[in-house]
Design a protein around this nucleic acid. Structure first.
Lengths: 123, 123
DNA sequence: GAATATATTTTACAGATGTAGATTTCATGA
DNA sequence: TCATGAAATCTACATCTGTAAAATATATTC
């Protein structure tokens, strides 16, 4: 796993695109973002290069540059999930799960599925 | 709930102190932080005033100023929990709970308790 | 190879954050 | 009431983030 410092929100958008499919060129990334994040090509390139500095994307050049994530979505989620768990629930998964179960509307189906999931992990 | 914009990590340290006990003076906050965050008094005051601007702490003056959180820990956790849920698990609590159950070492006890918790909410 | 189009890098700039010194205000004791 | 010391505000400054224009390098076409 690369030495990934903080990844800014806008940078994350680039990674999300690359996680869907890579390698991609800056133009392809630009196009993929056009709908939700209508940034200039320049902005897209800036974000890519910041990610590259942070070691979160790699690239190779075949005519034009092609970019790939150097940090997988799985790894990213893991980092976020751990940091959130620590920051907010002092590392207690039980507290975290309890919080979400108590404070949100889970349907009976959801509860059933969760129970199944837990049972499948029980001994 | 105050109109709380982003609360920076360092600002959060102030709030944590105030959540433990309030109102407190800037000196008391400074003292409480000394161990973990040996910041200058000036820094502490800067953070307090940024929090005040953001509407996250209030104060009154009796001789010296006393500060209190205007955002409760409960509210803060709620904001964080919601934003995390959306950002990382696209709003699916099921996915979130599943993630933590699958990717961490929960003891049999933990699982049992979680199951109980879920059962208690079932139907 | 020169002109042009396109991709990449540099520079920019405002706002947020981490950190704190300098300055001012204010309460309090002499 | 004046000095003094503490508290509060103002100013500062580097780094990060969001956003992009300007400049440059590179590929492509005639």
């Amino acid at each position: 796993m690369p030495n990934v410092q903080k990844i800014a929100d806008s940078e994350l958008e680039i990674l999300k695109v690359l996680w869907k499919d890579s390698p991609r060129t800056s133009n392809e990334i630009y196009d993929a973002l056009k709908q939700n994040k209508p940034w200039s090509k320049s902005t897209v390139l800036t974000l890519i290069s910041r990610l590259a500095e942070k070691g979160a994307v790699s690239s190779f050049k075949r005519g034009v540059h092609f970019y790939s994530p150097a940090l997988s979505e799985r790894e990213y989620i893991k980092l976020q999930a751990n940091s959130f768990l620590e920051r907010i629930f002092e590392g207690s998964i039980k507290d975290l799960v309890a919080y979400y179960c108590e404070n949100n509307d889970l349907t009976q189906e959801d509860l059933k599925e969760l129970k199944k999931m837990i049972e499948s992990r029980e001994e």
